[in-house]
Simulated assay, not measured.
Amino acid sequence: MKWKKLLALGMAAVMTAAFVTGCGGQKAADSGSGSGDKGKIIVGLDDNFPPMGFKDENNEITGFDVDLAKEASKRLGREVEFKAIDWSSKEAELKSGRVNVLWNGLDITEKRKENMLFSDPYMDNRQIIFVKKGRTDITDEKSLAGKVVGTQSASTAEEYMDKTEFFKKDVKEVKKYSDFVTAFMDLENGRVDAVVGDEIVGRYYMSKHPDTIDAVDVAVGPVSEFGIAFAKDNTALRDDVQKVLNEMKADGTIAKISEKWFGKDITK
């Protein structure tokens, strides 16, 4: 009978281990879900998107949206982690739960609303044309006919150009890059004639390269608004973040962060 007792004890140990492992795995998954618990908030971002989110000279992620997310998380009493993702796969990252929030100069569009839940808009954003310093033949959207135009993949500018007949038929080529910084570098090196992209990002790049880049101060496509995106069913986290954002707006914190990065308050 001794072997029966040993077998029973062994089976009990296996069942206990499985139960503990199962509970532990569930808890780990829940801790970052952002579904009203106090776990870590994982922010997905393109870490080469200055001034919204990028790596500084010390390889630390910084930026306007990063500062906003840090302050909001602090007020919520939750730890925050910034996770660089492939921006073209951002919806899949959010839907899978690998990130809880997309907070990185993300335009609110009707198409994106189908798959994501957004905060209230906190900043306006235009798509404008950037050219090499001294170029005068590109003055508006129509003057891009026959030109090679760069933009970032999965950006609002790309979305607009992909659905606009002029860019399909009259523009020589639309080159798509993983990030705007690479697109601007190709503009400086003459590999593209122009870059169409977010005004905020482009003007920040211009401020760092004043002798090489010019802006054509004309909007391309409709003016958009930046918002923070959450999983479609994650109303709990969206409501929590929106509440503290409203508080930060009311007490002047958002204005101070904007002044730090843009020299003035340009938020809504």
Rank of each mutant, 00 (worst) to 15 (best):
V148L: 01
V148H: 00
V149G: 00
V149Q: 01
G150D: 03
T151E: 00
T151K: 01
Q152R: 11
Q152T: 13
S153N: 13
S153F: 07
A154F: 02
A154T: 01
S155K: 00
S155N: 01
T156G: 08
T156S: 12
T156Y: 13
A157V: 04
A157I: 06
E158P: 02
Y160T: 07
M161E: 03
M161Y: 03
D162T: 12
D162Y: 04
K163L: 08
T164K: 02
T164F: 07
T164P: 02
T164I: 00
E165F: 07
E165H: 07
E165Y: 08
F166T: 05
F166A: 04
F167I: 05
F167L: 01
F167G: 04
F167W: 08
K168D: 12
D170Q: 14
D170C: 08
D170F: 06
V171R: 06
V171S: 00
V171G: 03
K172A: 13
K172Q: 14
E173H: 11
E173N: 12
E173Y: 06
V174Y: 04
K175M: 12
K175S: 08
K176N: 05
K176F: 11
K176A: 06
K176C: 06
Y177W: 10
Y177Q: 06
Y177I: 05
S178V: 15
S178K: 15
D179R: 08
D179A: 07
F180L: 15
F180E: 13
F180Q: 13
V181H: 03
V181S: 13
V181G: 09
V181N: 08
T182K: 14
T182P: 06
T182A: 15
T182G: 11
A183D: 10
A183Y: 06
F184V: 09
M185N: 15
M185P: 05
M185Q: 15
D186S: 10
D186T: 03
L187S: 05
L187T: 09
E188K: 15
N189E: 15
G190Q: 10
R191Y: 14
R191G: 01
R191F: 14
R191Q: 14
R191K: 15
V192A: 03
V192I: 13
D193S: 10
D193Q: 07
A194T: 08
A194V: 09
A194E: 04
A194N: 10
V195S: 04
V195R: 04
V196Y: 09
G197V: 12
G197Y: 12
